[in-house]
Amino acid sequence: MKEVMDATFVEEVMNSEQPVLVDFWAPWCGPCKMVTPVMEELDQQYDGKIKVVKVNVDENPEISEALRITSIPTIVLFKEGQPKDAVVGFRPKNDFEKMIDKHL
């Protein structure tokens, strides 16, 4: 899964041709660790249809602040440069599948 930074967010997420699922996380957050394998599975499963990336909020405060992320993990689905859907906290995989399928 690709890591996106404050500096590359616009290019990688806002200007992406495909919808992008962005996982906001930090290294010491337990639930974030649980979300990571789910994101990796989704990344493979939707290969070619959506992009899945992660943002470390600890190192990238600007983008987290701009998007008003107040809890992690937060997973946001971007389409055509806009946040379309967001989930705060861990969810089972099929909850994310439903969210993605709605926007494909």
């Binding site: 930090a26 957050c29 974030c32 600890d58 405060p61 107040t70 809890s71 992690i72």
Partner: peptide
């Protein structure tokens, strides 16, 4: 509002 202060501390 959150339930895990250690998780969200960096924010």
């Amino acid at each position: 509002v959150g339930y895990c202060a250690t998780c969200d501390a960096p924010i």
